[in-house]
Write a protein that binds this DNA or RNA. Structure first.
Lengths: 227, 227
DNA sequence: CGCCGCTAGATTGTTGACAATTTGCCCGGA
DNA sequence: TCCGGGCAAATTGTCAACAATCTAGCGGCG
């Protein structure tokens, strides 16, 4: 039965448009990001199509889209696999993040509203609390929100789009990093420095703080990759 | 010769793999970049498929790929159009370029081989000659090669990939810019400064020169957009 | 005379079947 | 035993037809 009745289907894909393709994309993306499908694993079109209740054509379109996002690798006539990012690639990606996030931080420092600055300060307080409570998961969460907020304030939609793509490729590494004991406390000062630079409306300080933070992330990535 | 089938398609699409899709992508991309199809123009699947001698499925896959590259805009159930980049968007894109090209310039200054430096100097000489000959087309060409070479030397494959995408969206604007009288002479100094910084292996100078150059490009974009 | 619903055309989204390519395996021979 | 040809299964690439959706023009009604 190709038509799942209104009550049926999954509990997702709410929006209309290209239902099958959109559903396939979001489901696959989620599966990759959460690790439900392992990196390097083959993605056989027919099998996945069956599992997601879409046709091969729709799933193929989804694979093409995810390939552009860097989450999937496709080689002609051989098939698609979940992309594996080596430590070196992760470092290179983070270097690009450094350049782009610094740009966002500068712009954020230049034209943030008072309300937005309050939000940043609030996040800073939350980060502090998470460290003293030794809650790495919540810390990682607040961390993500910090970066996201800085981007939002910057208003650099192009840079934000690029950053979102880059970050999606690193979720696994970042997750591992966040769980390393001591890491949150290590990065807290760097995060606070970024917030400080922006709230003081000092673009240069925000730039330097962002770069310092991501340099530290690169060191941590390298250290984690060596094991 | 790969395998010219007796039926004889067109005189192109030489490589194997996904012949139809690849052919459609390259043909469409070329058409968009050269302006054969105007920005904002609707891209009707059936019509294009017929023109390129591929089926709608293949062409649709190509459209999805080009959408990810930012060359095409697709809205569900309404169709695809050639993406138009406003002046503001062009500026935002160039700001991202600034961040990423500066990164490449720094890396290039840090680890370029002597041979690569010779190549840069050779390009510098060519730029000078084009200005004194007042040949804006050749200048633009050499300009492109300069940026491409810097990226190549940097070895930052991730940044290069992003930059290629960003640049593809700007070809039209850059082309218009290059034809403005006086513009080549204006940017010559900036380009030479970039080359100088890299050949002197001075990352900081390369960084500053690259940013100065792209700031100038942004000014020129704004000026051109106001008319 | 102007506005609303409606039908018809055009266009996109989806489907299942067909063709081409790759890969692993089996079998015969040295 | 080891090697190579070639067959067969699996998988991807392509195709043409079908269904859903949107757009525009037209006639009826207030």
């Amino acid at each position: 039965m190709p038509r799942p009745q209104p009550g049926g289907r999954r509990a997702d894909s709410p929006q209309a448009g290209e239902p099958a393709r959109a559903h396939a994309i979001s489901a696959l993306r989620r599966a990759i990001l959460t690790g439900d499908v392992a990196p390097g694993q083959r993605l056989v079109e027919e099998e996945l199509a069956g599992r997601l209740h879409v046709t091969r054509a729709s799933l193929r379109a989804a694979l093409i889209g995810l390939t552009a996002d860097g989450l999937v690798e496709r080689v002609p006539n051989k098939g698609a696999r979940v992309r594996v990012v080596s430590t070196e690639e992760a470092v290179a990606i983070t270097e690009c993040r450094m350049a782009l996030e610094a740009l966002c931080a500068v712009k954020a420092a230049e034209h943030a509203t008072g309300k937005q600055l309050d939000h940043l300060r609030e996040i800073g307080g939350r980060l502090r609390r998470c460290v003293s409570d030794e809650d790495p998961l919540k810390y990682s969460e607040a961390n993500q929100e910090l970066h996201r907020t800085v981007r939002l304030i910057s208003g650099q939609t192009v840079a934000v789009t690029l950053l979102d793509r880059l970050n999606a490729q690193l979720v696994r590494q970042q997750f591992q990093l966040a769980l390393r004991p001591g890491r949150p406390g290590e990065s807290l000062g760097e995060h606070l420095a970024i917030i400080d630079g922006i709230t003081r409306r000092d673009p240069d300080a925000a730039d330097k703080a962002t770069r310092a933070h991501l340099s530290s992330v690169i060191s941590a990535l390298r250290a984690a990759g060596r094991r």
